[in-house]
Nucleic acid binder design. Sequence first.
DNA 1: CCCTGATTCGC
DNA 2: GCGAATCAGG
Length: 185
Amino acid sequence: MSWTDERVELLRKLWNEGLSASQVAAEIGAGITRNAVIGKIHRLGLSQRAKTPVAARPRAAKPPRLQQQQQGVGVAVRATTVNAPSVVMGNVALALTPCALPQADARPQEEVVIPLTERVTIMELRESMCRWPIGDPTSPEFRFCGARTPGGAGGPYCGFHAQVAYQPAQDRRRARDDMKTARIA
DNA sequence: CCCTGATTCGC
DNA sequence: GCGAATCAGG
């Protein structure tokens, strides 16, 4: 693999958009590493980005407000139905098996909308991140929740998705609070 | 420990 | 030119 014109172009675009080196590397994929990106950035003389707010934009700048806001709630929510098992893959399917099948009268449930900026690609996924799948696995847009899992390297999901996966009938509010806490930690 | 970008230097 | 290793820092 090498720096094709196409990749360099993508590199310039993403870098100028303010993505970090590791994020750019994950987007480009093809075995391009964070170091490779940084090295290229310097060789191209792009080390000084336009005017990106002082670095440190790990992941979790701030939940972009959705159109339909909800007063008094820190996290935007929307109503949705439990996804059918068809969107579930691999070990995630195993984790969901015990309760993934919604009752015939599946009612809409609240689900926290994970801001795009906080979702992660499979390349960015870490041991300490929530592996809840978001979107169509065959789409380039496919991401994982990415929120921190309670206790760092605990279960496969963040507080909220663990609730969805294992105890869908339990208190949603507590689940949301757990997730907010996890993000801050 | 997580992450960030910068730099070095063998290939 | 490339990028792993390393460094300094948040």
